[in-house]
Write a protein that binds this DNA or RNA. Structure first.
Lengths: 143, 143
DNA sequence: CAGGTGGTCACCACTTTTCCCCACTTTTAT
DNA sequence: ATAAAAGTGGGGAAAAGTGGTGACCACCTG
């Protein structure tokens, strides 16, 4: 279970170190994909495979299914941690999330999220203002 | 399982190198064919058999099925990787996908797709606008 | 039939990227 | 305060990507 948030940096080679607390659960490798709200999602391989299997069953004939599969599958990239517990983030993913050097790594139970530091701050202040609204909506989910 | 996306180039002889990660599953040879949305589909030979079988079962009486079968079956071409892991893309396929020099190779679980770089970028920005719709679709899949 | 032409294929060579390891700095824990 | 762990940066070896040359074959042409 991943929780918490960390400030990390991406070096000139596009590598980012995974918070030490998370590493044990990610030894088998990770899959990084384009996430929602322009951040990156990081799944342990085992979690990912369940999702990929679902995605593979979408009908090729449907336009929307193809678009969805292309976003998620073609957007995904599997990686292993190096000796220092880092992963390489390919150029196209860094661009998608517009991450430069300073990023936020957040734990969200079964996945991590990688945010550009500025985008994160912006998102946080925006949602804080709407937090009452958001809380109301959560009613529907038994929370 | 093919995932991820890569920038590759087609040389003057029409050859394109397959991303190294994919090669092991394509050693037995590939089938390249006209795909949907004006890109090319690349299947491992074994996957192609499954696909071709499905196509052969489409009702001959339906105009649209006939068109689809002709697109995929008549457009197909089988090829082997050369010593450097490349395939030769025949002229008529390059023309169909209007690929010139710079292409995107994307992994979509059981097939690859080859896109002209510009066409890909255009497609991405277009579908990005529909990302709300896409998020909805995730709901249907329990993701 | 000999020679020329065009195309394909296998192999070689150069460049770029990726991966692996070592080293230094900063933070955390004892 | 000291030791240990985590985060960060960089150098060098290896692999991948790309472009090119030359052998080989079929076909056309004089």
């Amino acid at each position: 279970m991943f929780i918490g948030q960390y400030n990390h940096t991406i070096d000139e080679k596009g590598r980012m170190s995974i918070p030490a607390k998370y590493r044990r659960d990610l030894q088998q490798g990770v899959v990084v994909t384009r996430g929602l709200d322009h951040c990156l999602f990081v799944y342990p391989k085992s979690e990912w495979e369940v999702m990929a299997e679902k995605l593979s069953r979408l009908p090729v004939s449907q336009k929307k299914s193809r678009a969805f599969a292309r976003l998620m599958l073609a957007g995904a990239m599997d990686a292993d941690l190096d000796g220092q517990g880092r992963v390489m983030l390919p150029e196209y993913l860094r661009q998608y999330a517009s991450v430069k050097k300073h990023v936020i790594v957040a734990g969200l139970y079964n996945r991590l999220e990688i945010w550009d530091e500025d985008a994160w701050r912006e998102y946080r202040t925006k949602t804080e203002l709407e937090s009452d609204d958001i809380a109301e909506s959560m009613n529907d989910l038994d929370i």
